[in-house]
Design a binder for these strands. Structure first.
Lengths: 238, 238
DNA sequence: CTGACTTTGTGCATGTATTCACAAGGGCGT
DNA sequence: ACGCCCTTGTGAATACATGCACAAAGTCAG
């Protein structure tokens, strides 16, 4: 076959970011007992354009059947494999405040290859407590725990102030994938991947669009309130 | 005409997504007492290329001074205003499981114009409890509460199964901005904005890159394990 | 007042992503 | 066995985003 596309470094970033969405839609279909799905149906379920979906899937290989569609189970396997979900990814969560606890208890976390292997915190009143069947260990043990458990993904759920420090120690201990929930911009060496999840940023983006909608709807003028100055400094830390 | 850019619908989406990051960097600088900042410095603090930063800011207007840089306080105000943060955005959180509670207690949430105005849940054992100075109300009250509090942004923190239903009710009650934490693809009318925050998706993206790194480092062959089939259906619900 | 120096704002080239539209390919009924 | 019909996979067109490189515009020293 004309195997071209699927090569080992050929998948665009935008496509990678959508594969998990497709995977979720596929699981839903499988749950419903659907055996076969067309690009159009899957695209609707995933909330994207069908041409985009087909092009995305074509980067993994030619797994559809013309005139029929895609076999759901087979496609689930191919996408999972491409994303690396057929192997085990031990995850460590650092910081067990409200958010860290929520993450530790979140069911969907553990599924699909991700396994919470360690919980770490520096607060002595939290260390030693059990959360989601694991005992919280002290941050001093970070390096040892990471090596022992072969942790490959670190989740930072600390206050902003500790974010960079924790990140540096994770990197030093050999972690090369980091998911950051702390509202701080992390700097890391090139070989380390960081993804951030930041609800404050998402809210601000929503506010931008909401403001636009409001100013269009009401009246094209007076979108702001010039009399009320913004309060200058807002602590970014915990 | 030189003034062109700043028009009422001229800001690219990619730029909007970065403005909150710049804002955070600016707050940090202001906290340090920095009065003026160059595009290069700000770019480093925000983790982007300086040309990109300048182009982004140029979409809001010409707020820098050549040879000097940007006045931090003034830029904070301009970016805040552009994002709509100079006005009040009442937020309702629906679903007060681990995640909802973490969000309600999250300090950074309340700052910068966002104000938690209501907490809603359908579980009778949760309704009536107080979280972060607010009493949890029953979901049945959703429409009334949203109108009374003039809620404009809804945060969905329910299990996946309830996500679409809650979303529909929010939309029906007039909410046009939704932040979705439930692992489900929401479908909404065109005039409604949805942003999703999905840690499982972020982890999968990290896994993809980690896998690539591993297979490049180890040996260019054998990136997959053909003997170990993927376990087929994984419930997506809570 | 002048000229050297700094940093912005932006034209242009390049790269990446999306979407259209259709030929290529495969199933299925007859 | 054949041809119709459906859906994939992809070339080509378009739209969007990034980054270089520099002229325009300001500061500041003397």
């Amino acid at each position: 076959m004309s195997q071209s596309a699927n090569g080992s470094h050929g998948i665009p970033e935008a496509t990678v970011a959508r594969l998990p969405v497709y995977l979720r839609a596929l699981f839903q279909l499988a749950e419903n007992g659907t055996a076969t799905v067309s690009s159009e149906e899957l695209a609707v379920a995933a909330g994207v354009n069908s041409a985009k979906l087909r092009k995305d899937l074509s980067h993994l290989g030619s797994y559809g059947t013309r005139g029929v569609g895609y076999d759901v189970e087979y496609l689930v396997y191919q996408v999972s494999r491409e994303l690396g979900l057929t192997q085990d990814w031990p995850v460590a969560i650092i910081g067990l405040g409200n958010l860290g606890r929520a993450l530790a208890n979140y069911g969907g976390f553990a599924s699909r290859g991700f396994r919470i292997a360690a919980l770490l915190d520096s607060d002595p009143t939290v260390v030693g407590t059990r959360i989601a069947r694991l005992t919280v260990q002290h941050s001093d043990e970070m390096e040892a725990v990471i090596r022992r458990q072969r942790v490959s993904i670190g989740v930072i759920a600390t206050p902003a102030g500790s974010g960079q420090g924790v990140c540096d120690r994770l990197v030093a201990a050999g972690v090369t994938s980091i998911l950051n929930f702390a509202p701080v911009i992390l700097s890391v060496p090139d070989h380390v991947d960081v993804r951030k999840v930041d609800l404050s940023i998402e809210l601000q983006i929503l506010a931008f669009h909401a403001q636009r909608k409001a100013s269009v709807a009401d009246r094209p003028a007076r979108p702001d309130r010039p009399d009320q100055a913004v309060e200058a400094v807002e602590a970014v830390g915990s």
